[in-house]
Design a protein around this nucleic acid. Structure first.
Lengths: 144, 144
DNA sequence: ATACTTGCAAATGATTTGCCAGTGT
DNA sequence: ACACTGGCAAATCATTTGCAAGTAT
């Protein structure tokens, strides 16, 4: 399910028997306009005022609903709150820098060798889509 | 700092100007007798009654103190509480199965190739010692 | 009209902190 | 003695849940 624009996503919502509400629209607009995964809190405040705001509990409920519909997913990168993103970027995974907090996007294919190397160890199937690889990005590794 | 027995660890505690107390002893004994990383809660209950119990807040404070002394470390494996272990197993890292919850220990060396492959991507230095690799173990991957 | 949703408050789980009485050294 | 600790309650952070009032269909 690749989400490219708001109407397409709202169609899915309606088609699956859910209602199109302001809160739901906000969540999708926020994710559509964000250039990186964002927290539920950030969505609830309308990305700091750039969009209308909504109740945090409703945002969480809607993130879950939209997740069930396959429109949204989220990642847990190190400490801090979960970060949500559109499922459209299904083939994109992240490297989380524990120093500067940035998420570095990589194509899932690029991690194929990594997954294979881990599978060799004991048949373990690594999944980085929900719990990304944590470490230090190039800049932070160089710095301190 | 490789911890092999209680007295050795307590010597470090004293040497660094900290006091040897029942709660501190409990934390170390629990970690010494556990065969896998355990939660603060499990330590506070004396591994379910096998050892004397202690206040949860004290356990957390002691885990932090012992961590500062380099005697203890902890990992965040998927959802759920953090799991603590002796720093003696410094060279041991874990693969966390999100299906059955088990932690599979692997020698850090075994992940050298994995780390190298990730470094190739963008100079990112992966660190699995604090946020382990999450996925499904061989048994769960086969099952469902 | 009516089931799905919202907003607000209260509950949860993990962890932290304030405070004062207790105790290693 | 005295600063370091422990116990207990209350605070925090992220997230979930209960419930009555609101609204999309």
């Amino acid at each position: 399910m690749v989400v490219r624009d708001l109407d397409e996503a709202l169609d899915v919502v309606r088609r699956e028997g859910h209602r199109v509400t302001a809160s739901r629209r906000l969540v999708l607009e926020a994710l559509l306009s964000a250039d990186a995964p964002v927290s539920a809190e950030a969505i609830a405040t309308g990305l700091d005022g750039r969009l209308p705001s909504s109740d945090l509990a409703s945002v969480y409920r809607n993130l879950e609903t939209l997740g069930d519909l396959g429109l949204v997913r989220h990642i847990h990168a190190g400490h801090g709150p979960g970060r949500y993103l559109l499922a459209g970027e299904q083939d994109r995974e992240y490297l989380a820098c524990e120093s500067c907090g940035r998420l570095e996007a990589v194509e899932a294919d690029a991690l194929a060798d990594v997954r294979a190397a881990i599978r060799e160890l004991s048949g373990f199937e690594a999944r980085f889509s929900h719990f990304p690889i944590v470490g230090r990005c190039r800049d932070c590794a160089r710095g301190g």
